[in-house]
């Protein structure tokens, strides 16, 4: 289409492989390799070991994994609920622009600032949440609501409104139209919002680091603490745990989405 000669294609593909491999792919591969390396003093890691991974899955680090999973499920799923609700309520109403702007606020400002805001707002009366796990869950909820809203709102724009009209013309009450027609048609978007929310929540660091209490350390916070102490290999191992967990969760949600799409 663009490059017609074989030699031209070969050159372009080589450049692509170099750029994509070195710039985009390599960093992620290096983290995975480091997780299993006893030491790394040359071009390639040496002393293959599972020790780091064992450390990353024991004691405090294992607790972090559990904390992260709980936070991701509570924050992420609530976020999907409210994001979907918000997007459907705003769709086509005269509040659409205001709702859009409000829901995009948490993405538009740095997560650190969102965390600072929660810290300032909930360290005082009437609601005192500072020092509890709930402030972490709320931070994740707030950030993920924005993404869920965006995903569902985009899907709503693609859904043909005539389905709902046809359902109504067949005598379905508005509640039935919502439950039997509009929601099922949004199911793929909703489950993809859930996947995105859980994945982003698992890796969230900016807001979390502002608000987390010592009793509720998520995986990324633990990983940061490890690197701060110079235990970079264990940190890498724990990052691999994080990656693997995220991938598994997203794959599960993806299968749910596949089933939703088949119907």
């Amino acid at each position: 289409m663009l490059v017609w000669t074989r030699s031209g294609k070969a050159i372009v593909w080589t450049a692509f492989a170099v750029v994509f491999g070195l710039l985009v792919l390599l960093p992620f591969l290096v983290v995975i390799a480091a997780a299993f390396a006893g030491s790394w003093n040359g071009v390639l890691p040496s002393d293959l070991t599972g020790e780091h991974l064992r450390q990353a899955l024991s004691g405090d680090e294992l607790a972090s994994l559990s904390v992260s999973l709980q936070t991701a499920f509570m924050g992420g799923l609530l976020a999907v609920l409210f994001g979907t609700w918000g997007a459907m309520a705003a769709h086509g109403s005269r509040f659409a622009r205001a709702a859009d702007a409000m829901h995009h606020l948490p993405i538009a400002v740095p997560s650190v600032v969102v965390g600072l805001g929660l810290l300032v707002a909930f360290s005082r009366q009437p609601v005192l949440l500072n020092g509890t796990k709930w402030i972490v869950v709320i931070a994740h909820l707030v950030l993920m609501v924005a993404f869920s809203y965006g995903t569902v709102a985009a899907a709503l724009q693609r859904v043909d409104p005539s389905y709902a009209d046809v359902a109504a013309s067949l005598g379905a009450s508005p509640a039935r139209v919502l439950w039997r027609v509009r929601l099922p048609m949004l199911l793929p978007a909703i489950s993809s919002a859930a996947g995105l929310s859980v994945a982003l929540s698992m890796g969230e660091v900016g807001a979390t680091i502002m608000v987390y209490p010592a009793s509720w350390r998520t995986l990324p916070v633990s990983i940061f603490a490890l690197t701060d102490r110079g235990q970079t290999f264990v940190a890498a191992a724990e990052a691999v745990v994080l990656l693997a967990t995220t991938v598994v969760l997203v794959l599960i949600l993806d299968r749910l989405r596949g089933r939703a799409a088949e119907r």
Partner: peptide, 15 residues
Amino acid sequence: LALPSFLVALSFTFI
């Protein structure tokens, strides 16, 4: 797009 950004920074300490 869904991965945490600090992974890249972490890898840089090895690279």
